[in-house]
């Protein structure tokens, strides 16, 4: 099965991203394909490398980066939602005159068209959030 995943909530505050991660991992382990993970609303906060959780807890951001690297996942952060919430890559930094970037390894910032395309091209779109 060819899945796409939408994550609508930020890390730690809400279980959505944990559930999405566990689902993605289980699906990949079972031989399914994840064609894209799209982070929307506060879900874009899963893609900041400034996250520093206590050492005795899971690192949600790194976990996504590692899963992405292991399976060549397309981890996409919505640009409009990211601009509101301060998630910035090199291009956004230059475009908006910021002096820093914080996009985590393996994530990329792109438009909402990527979410629509994920809906069209996948066989199932899984939405994680309230």
């Amino acid at each position: 099965m060819k899945f796409a995943i939408q994550v609508n909530e930020g890390p730690y505050q809400h279980q959505a991203t944990d559930s999405a991660y566990q689902f993605a991992k289980a699906a990949l382990d079972a031989g399914h394909e994840i064609m894209r993970v799209f982070f929307y609303h506060d879900g874009v906060n899963n893609g900041t490398n400034l996250t520093t959780p206590p050492q005795d807890d899971r690192n949600i951001v790194n976990r996504w980066s590692e899963l992405g690297k292991a399976h060549d996942l397309d981890l996409v952060v919505c640009v409009a939602a990211a601009q509101r919430r301060g998630i910035v890559d090199e291009g956004e930094m230059q475009r908006n005159g910021k002096d820093a970037q914080n996009i985590a390894d393996g994530f990329r910032i792109s438009g909402l068209g990527q979410l629509i395309e994920a809906g069209i091209q996948s066989e199932r779109l899984m939405v994680f959030g309230d």
Binding site: N8, Y40, H41, A80, A81, G111, L112, G113, L115, I116, E117, G119, I120
Partner: peptide, 17 residues
């Protein structure tokens, strides 16, 4: 959520679904 939903609808309209 309502406003960001509407943003998806507006972008999605270009995809002729």
């Amino acid at each position: 959520y309502a406003w960001e939903s509407l943003e998806v609808v507006l972008i999605g309209a270009a995809f002729d679904q």
